[in-house]
Amino acid sequence: MSGRLFSLPIALVFAAMVVPVHAATIEITMENLVISPAEISARVGDTITWINKDVFAHTATAKNGDFDVTLPPKKSATSVLKKAGTVEYYCRYHPNMKATLKVEP
């Protein structure tokens, strides 16, 4: 009986450890007022490196509020994906800059 009670927490610990092992780093670039790739898939636990190659400040702002990253000119930043779902994001300063990030569980 007691063995079965232990197995659930142990399984959870293993599940939590599995994610970082497969975690990848994905680069998303903003250059000449264009976000590329315009659409990309990632998984929960992956890191996004946002690279701003422009002389303008940009933001990567999720429409659903999941993230809001500010990128000064010629700077980069990272964020770790915590939630699954398809996120549409844009630049608050230049709303014509739009892209989609698909986060798989």
Binding site: N32, L33, H94, P95
Partner: peptide
């Protein structure tokens, strides 16, 4: 050309 692109965005804004 970059200027034009950014100013077109300003106009829309």
């Amino acid at each position: 050309q970059t200027g034009l692109k950014i100013f077109q965005g300003h106009q829309q804004h």
